[in-house]
Nucleic acid binder design. Structure first.
Lengths: 199, 199
DNA sequence: GTGGGAATATAGACAGGTCTGTCTATGAAA
DNA sequence: TTTCATAGACAGACCTGTCTATATTCCCAC
């Protein structure tokens, strides 16, 4: 999920804007990033910017959609890399998330950040809610038991979101050990949930 | 934890500013709230504002300290109201948090929101980290086992933070049933953790 | 080959709004 | 008189969005 800003030259103007906005919005915050900065760093003219994104709010929505796509792709790919199979259990979650948390550009979940920052915009909240639902659906695929799978997936997603937040509070250069240890406990007890409930 | 804006008349100018800022920052966001709006709603003059808060950043820090105090007081009081005793277990957590999540002005955790919005300000992150440590310490008091109490408290705090975030994504007027059900599962399995580990 | 038009792009001036912070003038209470 | 307060003008920075002028490339017709 690294963004290679050096590769902007081969992209269309629209993609350059979107990728630059993605990086700056994620790093510094949406409101903290003026459109002139995006324009300067993506190397487009103002008229081009407004051709593709008629307003900043349009760009914000595009950013969230783009982020959703990228993140979901990464999430599923990282889980698979760590051995995920349908119904195979929660084990791949921890190393996959560790990968993300330990990325030097990590600054939490773009959707949580956006709702925090722009919670008064209904479509930001809607997009973010949908993102979390999709994340929860992927987690549900990991769970072995069809019974109460949805409920358990929600509980796991809550644990994941909590870890995402806590990792954001840890020093950026740290290995997020405390967060990962706490999440490990949660995933362990949630995995053991079925053993307890099985007759 | 209701703020009664109608009671501002009996407060000092400084407290009026602080309380007004608290309400507006929490409701709309810090950057979304200009100082002129705080000034207008607290009924002070600009010179008075700057007498007590030499810059907006000073006000933000004061807001976070004030919020910390208020929230921690509420948290401990709500747990006690729901039957909390040292070592008495996690049961009071769910109703206490339900109380908060179901408050019509609920908009998540001010500290999570602030880090999301202003993550580039080091002292905002520091204050927020300290807040979470204090919250975790209160949670630790609920746990019965001295062994691994710190680790378990961290896991519980992660679950709580996840629920805080998810409740913010639910519709503001809803009863946050999905979040509370998910959190209930987490607290149940975490509470059962000791039973599993005890010989 | 040349010229013209269309499409897309660049650089950036400009208007108007919002924001933070500085400051003046005045008023009220002790 | 001192202290603390009010109302609000003002400067400068930043922001979003509108618009002008210009440049480049491609395609087509002559």
């Amino acid at each position: 999920m690294t963004s290679n800003s050096a590769d902007l030259t081969e992209l269309s103007a629209q993609d350059r804007i979107l990728q630059t906005a993605h990086d700056l919005f994620y790093r510094d915050g949406i409101r903290a990033t003026g459109i002139d900065k995006i324009i300067a760093e993506s190397g487009v003219a103002k008229a081009t910017f407004y051709r593709y994104f008629p307003s900043k709010n349009d760009l914000i929505r595009a950013f969230l959609d783009y982020r959703h796509q990228r993140w979901m792709n990464w999430f599923e790919e990282a889980l698979a890399r760590h051995g995920a199979k349908p119904g195979g259990g929660l084990a791949p979650l921890l190393p996959a998330l560790a990968e993300w948390f330990q990325n030097p550009v990590y600054r939490g979940c773009a959707f949580i950040n956006s709702v925090s920052e722009l919670g008064t915009l209904a479509d930001v909240v809607e997009i973010s809610r949908n993102h979390k639902q999709d994340m929860t659906a992927v987690i549900a695929q990991l769970l072995p038991e069809p019974e109460q799978r949805e409920q358990l997936a929600i509980a796991v997603a809550i644990a994941v979101d909590g870890a995402i937040v806590k990792a954001q509070f840890e020093n950026q250069t740290s290995d997020k050990a405390e967060t990962l240890a706490g999440l490990a406990i949660l995933l362990k007890v949630l995995s053991a949930q079925k053993a307890m409930d099985s007759p």
